[in-house]
Design a protein around this nucleic acid. Structure first.
Lengths: 334, 334
DNA sequence: TTGAAAGCGGTACCAA
DNA sequence: TTGGTACCGCTTTCAA
């Protein structure tokens, strides 16, 4: 069917070894010979088989990517950046979407581990132990999460959330609602912790909702609870949830930001452009993806051993969805 | 490093062939032997190497997926569905995002062709000739596009667009704007054709804009041109562009649907939930992905030969973004 | 600089 | 039912 190195060798009057060298290390073959081989290869439409090469060299030049939900615009952007970066370095990327099922995450990771050189893990919910198990089998870097002993690149939103809460405080809000992401999700817990801490410092009342899958519909669902709580501002786990909240609030005739303020995290495109535009904590999503790939490939290609932890900054982007608190209410009138 | 079939064989006191059989066709090995082998395998943590198997059997159990832009929610949903379906059938999926560059599409497809069993092509812009070249090398199915001799699954939006234009007509609109997608994109041309035809039938004036990359910012860019044209309603190539239009219109203080009506295509989640909610032509995006995989695997696994063309329906979902034409204007007063 | 040959880790046909 | 063996297509010493 497809031409093999042997065919090319025969056609060019050389040995298969030489054909192999022409593609793997062209410098080691006399220019004239090389040209003859390359010509024959072109004539026969030959390209070295990646599987065969993989088997021979023991490396696949393939990366595995595990994401909770590729339909979440935030993850999509990260995935896109990773995939582009990987291809530039001649790596292919296996995509595995776990649809927010942490159990699948583990199984999938183990399966993938067998057929890739390295793993890109956007797996906020896999438990640390299993995650450790996975990266013991295959080099891996974890995204937006920190695991001892494992390379990672994260944009902890502490800074951005601090700015967000300070922003709301400055606007006169004294009672915030926090809409959490998924249970046992590293990022959700981290964000929750950050918000709690800051609220305490600023002596703000904080009511928490969730945890829930970080999706649009769960956000919408939370909106009614938030409203019932009387909080004047909402900080949501991410933009998707924030948009869900927004959607439901507007259904109920609640005006944002006049009646209630709203902050998201991720700064996805559609947050910037919703009505009203969403105040959001911006993460450098594509940088996140690129750095993760770089980190992984440094291990794979340059044989670097050390486990690195990269940190990227976050910042608050203020837009229309946050405004002054309705009443200066420094306390209940009672 | 990792245990091989030979190791297991030694441990279990059988030949490598038997080990292989235990995993490939367990039925052909005596239960007692099998259990002994499986126990040994478990003890050694053995799993058959997929690369080695691929080389031996000549199939990789891998599908290649080419999308123009995974960050476009529409494509993300399709990709998600495909990937889930493929995994269920024990296929892995290579993701290749071409970032809307049709040239890369071709190169990528050829590269992928060498290392996968089949190709899922969401490539609206690759020219027919090259596409034919690709599918001659490896089984492929094309999504949302029709190419003679190539299996495909598409949801032509003719029906939905017909409904959309009739809807606008009924609302009193007599001058429509059409915002096209990418140049040479099959779906953009098809949609343009459909809208043109219907407008002619209903004797509506139609002004066209584009073609442009089907992204948010190009939509925003078109909004001003549309406004200048005096059209009372806009049909956009897809929701992402429609949301771009919407965003820019609202920036300019133009009210939707009071001043201008707006229709998108895809019915992505965020269309349903924008403000105002977007009237959109719904495509069964996940069905699109699933059927594509089914079609491809029927060829690969069941050896089906025929080229099939599947068609899925589209329908108009009416939401807030379309309303009565501002003035009944049955014609210019002049 | 080039060739011969031994794998890489399985599969599958043929015999036993 | 099991084992022996010849590949699958390329890489990589080792010699020439």
């Amino acid at each position: 069917m497809t031409a093999s190195a042997e065919d090319v060798a025969a056609d060019a009057g050389v040995s298969p070894s030489t054909v192999s060298r022409c593609f793997a290390s062209p410098g080691q073959v006399r220019p004239e010979t090389r040209e003859r081989v390359l010509a024959a290869a072109a004539r026969l439409g030959y390209t070295p088989s990646r599987v065969a090469r993989s088997l021979a060299v023991g490396r696949t030049r393939t990366l595995g990517l595990i994401v909770p939900d590729i339909a979440n615009p935030g993850f999509a952007v990260v995935a896109k950046a990773m995939q582009a970066r990987a291809r530039r370095k001649d790596y292919a990327v296996f995509l595995a979407d776990t649809d927010e099922h942490p159990d699948d995450e583990y199984e999938l990771a183990l399966t993938l581990a067998r057929q890739v050189d390295g793993l890109l893990l956007v797996a906020p919910r896999m438990d640390t132990e299993r995650l450790g198990e996975v990266v013991r089998r295959v080099p891996g870097v974890v995204v937006n999460r920190r695991v001892p002993g494992v390379s990672s690149v994260a944009a902890p939103t502490d800074d951005g959330l601090r700015q967000a809460v300070a922003h709301l405080h400055a606007l006169g809000h004294r009672h915030l609602a926090l809409v959490l992401g998924a249970r046992h999700s590293w990022s959700s817990e981290r964000r929750g912790h950050a918000v709690r801490e800051i609220c305490e410092q600023l002596e703000l009342k904080l009511t928490e909702f969730g945890p829930h899958e970080p999706k649009f519909h769960t956000g919408a669902q939370m909106a009614d609870l938030v409203l019932a709580s009387g909080a004047g501002a909402v900080v949501a786990h991410n933009d998707l949830m924030a948009l869900g909240v927004l959607s439901r609030l507007s259904e109920r005739g609640v005006r944002v930001p006049d009646d209630i303020s709203l902050v998201g995290v991720d700064d996805i495109l559609l947050a910037a452009t919703s009505t009203p535009a969403l105040t959001s904590v911006r993460l450098p999503l594509d940088a996140l993806g690129e750095r993760a790939v770089d980190l992984l490939l440094r291990r794979l290609d340059d044989g670097a051993e050390e486990c690195q932890e990269l940190t990227l900054d976050s910042e608050l982007i203020v837009r229309r969805s946050t405004g002054p608190a309705p009443r200066p209410s420094t306390g209940p009138v009672s």
